[in-house]
């Protein structure tokens, strides 16, 4: 719900040649969405804090020296934005390819086949094949939890699980360990998930996970559908309480 006392102005800007107006406290992504222009994003999930990490949502802003991440960049008066220029469309495809090449994403045997954000993005961005060499790391699956499984082979390090656990559940069981290409999401002190003393077993991480990296035990190929209705609900309810 918009706060009537909030300090914002209405600004006009141009997205893909179309003049639109937006509130000055909105991000480019929100403004575009309201005008039915879809900008792809992966680390972005409405209800969680944006971190501008996946870079899929980068857009061109006329006069700006660099591409800007639309999930964390606020609109401004007179901005001229191109969300689907040839350059950014190509970059998006390469970013997706990087994810496919980084870990071992084998869609045909994945629990999330057909319900996967990464797969959907690949389709949306016209990714037909991966021209980068596959890096095929060897990563161990953690099935120690009695209800859930963590398969790092399918993790894209979007940190949605980390954020939902910290921001919404308040347990902060997940975090990222290591750095660079060696980075992994882990529970507590890197021990098996089933041994975590902080995990409440709420399953929020499983349902915000864009891929089959976190899933419910007992689900077979293509059976894991994620339910995320709780996220906007919880967010709104908390705002009301405040």
């Amino acid at each position: 719900m918009p706060d009537a006392t909030a300090l914002y102005q209405v600004v006009t800007l141009v997205i893909n040649g179309v003049e639109i107006s937006a509130r000055s406290d909105q991000t480019i992504m929100q403004a575009a969405e309201e005008n039915e222009i879809e900008i792809p994003g992966l680390c972005h999930l409405t209800g969680l804090k944006d971190i501008g990490a996946c870079r899929l949502c980068v857009v061109e802003v006329k006069g700006a020296p660099r591409l800007v991440p639309s999930c964390v960049t606020r609109v401004a008066e007179g901005m001229e934005i191109f969300t689907h220029s040839e350059r950014v469309v190509n970059y998006r495809r390469t970013i997706l390819e990087m994810l496919y090449a980084e870990r071992n994403h084998v869609c045909s045997v994945c629990v999330s086949n057909g319900h996967c954000d990464l797969q959907a993005l690949a389709l949306k961005c016209g990714l037909e094949y991966v021209h980068l060499p596959y890096m095929t790391p060897r990563l161990k699956i953690d099935a120690s939890h009695d209800r859930f499984v963590y398969d790092p082979n399918r993790c894209v390090l979007c940190t949605r699980c980390v954020r939902v656990c910290d921001e919404i559940e308040g347990a902060h069981t997940w975090d990222v360990m290591g750095r660079g290409i060696e980075a992994r999401v882990v529970t507590d002190l890197g021990q098996p998930w089933g041994e975590s003393e902080t995990c409440t077993g709420c399953g929020k991480c499983v349902h915000v996970c864009p891929t089959g990296a976190l899933f419910e035990k007992g689900k077979s190929v293509a059976e894991m559908e994620k339910r995320r209705q709780f996220l906007p609900y919880l967010t709104v309810m908390r705002e009301v309480k405040r």
Partner: peptide, 25 residues
Amino acid sequence: DEASMRYTAASLRVPLSKVYGVATF
């Protein structure tokens, strides 16, 4: 070691996974 990271987490009231995340970063 693990015990020292647990002690740090409890003393400073920082989540365990964050201590581990920082220690490995």
